[in-house]
Computed example of a mutant assay.
Amino acid sequence: MRKRRKKKHPVRKFFRNMMAALLCIFVVACVFFSAKGYQMYKEAVAEKPVSERVEEIRSMEGFTPYSELPQFYIDATISVEDHRFEKHCGIDLIAIGRAVLTDIKERAFVQGGSTITQQLAKNMLFTQEKKLERKAAEVFAALELESDYTKEEIFELYVNTSYFGNGYYGVGEAAYGYFGKPPSELREYECAMLAGIPNAPSAYSPDGDGELAARRTEIVLDSMVRNKILTKEEADEIKEEDF
């Protein structure tokens, strides 16, 4: 006796076809924006190679070498901006996946997922405008930076090209502008505060909303606890310092 073949449920079939169509659209979109991003990257390096841009940054007045950065500031920045910085190859697939899901949920670019290397690429080569092709271009530039420069060099270049609000570009200008001292003399609370500013300079500038700046500093310190750089007791003690 032949077994009767089960009929496929029409609703399941519809959703299966819908998922397949969405997957195809996603793949096509990835290919399209990757191609546009690669073209954007090639145009940027053709205009001026990465090596030339790096030398220009290093020759800027007020450039702060890695050796003059407090270890606490380095740890704080990596912790809050890109805690897998030492391990990834310039892009963090976990962070990108989380950002994509958040952006889809919110139907807007609300989370970046960019690594420190990608942010450096953006600062050096591209505009701040949020476009998918620019995000793709960042990836190609980040891979080049990671192949030609050490992590210390990438970090050094990143903090010297970041905007810290109030017209201050680079950690050196920001340290003198906000605290009247070079980065090497910053206290731990001041380091944490500077580490938190580039995420949203106009909001977290100490010269702006002091409450917001303090809240952001606490977020930085909490991230250091979460990443096991500080104990909760150490973070709480630093929070009492204020600025």
Rank of each mutant, 00 (worst) to 15 (best):
G180E: 12
P198C: 09
P10C: 09
D148Y: 12
T117E: 03
A44C: 10
R226T: 12
K87F: 10
E68A: 08
V28W: 09
E56T: 11
N123T: 07
E234G: 04
L145S: 07
E43T: 14
L186Y: 03
E156D: 07
Y38L: 10
L22Q: 11
A175D: 02
G37P: 07
S34E: 01
F14Y: 14
K6Y: 08
R98I: 07
L22Y: 13
T115R: 04
A108D: 11
D236E: 14
V50W: 02
I219T: 06
F126H: 06
K42L: 00
E144P: 05
C30F: 15
S59A: 05
V80H: 01
A203H: 05
T127Q: 07
E133V: 00
I57N: 05
L101C: 11
E52T: 03
L157R: 05
E52F: 04
V11R: 04
F26K: 00
P182F: 06
E146Q: 08
G196A: 13
K130F: 05
F26Y: 08
N17P: 02
K232H: 15
K135M: 03
V139C: 03
P182S: 12
L23T: 14
K105L: 05
M224R: 03
N227S: 11
A95S: 11
Q71N: 15
S184R: 14
D82L: 05
P70E: 10
L93C: 00
S34K: 01
H9T: 15
E241P: 01
A235G: 04
D148K: 13
R16F: 07
R5V: 10
E56R: 11
I219A: 15
M18R: 04
E240R: 11
N227G: 08
S205K: 09
G180Q: 11
K13G: 10
V11I: 15
Y66N: 12
F72Q: 01
E146G: 08
K122T: 00
L186S: 03
L194H: 00
A213P: 00
C191V: 02
A136L: 01
C30L: 14
A214C: 14
I57K: 09
P183S: 09
L101N: 05
T64D: 14
T127M: 13
K3A: 13
E188R: 02
R216P: 01
A76Y: 06
K232F: 12
A214M: 12
A213F: 07
S114R: 03
L22S: 13
F155Q: 05
G210L: 14
C89A: 13
K36F: 02
A108Y: 09
L143G: 06
E156T: 08
E156Y: 07
C191L: 03
H83F: 09
E47A: 14
T64F: 05
R98C: 08
M224S: 03
S205Y: 06
R5P: 11
T115D: 08
D242E: 08
L212T: 04
A99G: 08
I238Y: 01
K130R: 12
K131T: 09
D242P: 03
P198N: 06
A121L: 01
D82R: 01
D75V: 00
M19C: 14
A20R: 12
R226M: 07
Q118V: 08
E218M: 13
V54K: 03
E56Q: 14
E188D: 09
S34I: 04
V11L: 15
F32H: 11
R12C: 14
S59I: 06
T217Y: 10
V28N: 06
Y178D: 05
S223K: 12
V27S: 10
R5H: 15
V28S: 11
P198L: 07
E173C: 12
R53L: 15
